[in-house]
Simulated assay, not measured.
Amino acid sequence: MERRDDVRRAADAQAQPPPAEVAYDQWWAGDLGSAVRCSGALLCLLLLIDWAAGDITPARGALWATLAVLLFVILHPARVAAGEDWLASRGLVREHRVRTDHLVSVHWLDGVSQRLVLRDSFGGRVEIDPQVLVANPGLWYRLDKGARRSSSRGSLTCGETALRRVAERIDSETALAVFKVSGLE
């Protein structure tokens, strides 16, 4: 009886695929630390100026603290993660998730900060910085794999150019890194 249970457990373990690995933004913690340091430096600087001028009051201190918190909210980086057929971006308040194997569109937004906007057929929408994909090959691999599935299904109607643009940027960054390491820059 005991042997049968062991065989059954072993068969069940082999029948279930191993959980897919999740890739995270490796630089998120450093970016979060930078946001905290910038906010703290602003608060300290403003309080120091008020203290030196002799104008420091609790109300002004609260105002400066509010400004520092506002700066932190603005600078807080989104935590980007990707797994088998999904990509998620978690901000301070909520998480946005998109199914990469059901992508409908991918748009590249230029401006003060570049953004990549992904939409899936279920209404999911994720907006991320393309530099996160460039700096994290695991995230790019999972996104590209799912986008290729979407493209082969025919659901990705708009965005192959944006994905190609990210791929070219990743290729050029990789080539530069190889040249630097080999001393051929």
Score class of each variant (00 low, 15 high):
133 L>D: 00
164 R>C: 06
13 A>P: 01
111 G>L: 01
175 A>H: 12
118 L>R: 00
100 T>G: 00
106 V>D: 02
115 R>E: 02
137 P>I: 10
93 V>L: 15
23 A>F: 04
124 G>H: 04
73 V>F: 12
129 D>R: 01
172 S>C: 04
111 G>R: 00
119 R>I: 04
158 C>S: 14
127 E>R: 06
38 C>T: 12
138 G>R: 04
182 S>I: 11
150 S>N: 06
47 L>S: 07
114 Q>Y: 05
61 G>K: 04
101 D>R: 01
41 A>V: 09
89 S>M: 05
7 V>E: 13
158 C>F: 14
90 R>F: 06
55 D>I: 06
172 S>E: 13
62 A>C: 08
151 S>K: 12
50 D>A: 15
64 W>P: 00
139 L>Y: 05
9 R>E: 13
122 F>D: 15
73 V>M: 14
122 F>T: 15
182 S>N: 14
136 N>H: 02
14 Q>M: 12
109 L>A: 10
105 S>Q: 10
118 L>D: 01
126 V>G: 01
146 G>R: 01
158 C>Q: 14
4 R>A: 14
134 V>E: 00
164 R>G: 15
71 L>R: 06
92 L>N: 01
144 D>Q: 14
135 A>G: 07
86 W>V: 10
31 D>G: 07
183 G>I: 14
87 L>D: 02
149 R>A: 12
57 T>A: 11
94 R>Y: 09
6 D>H: 11
184 L>N: 14
91 G>W: 11
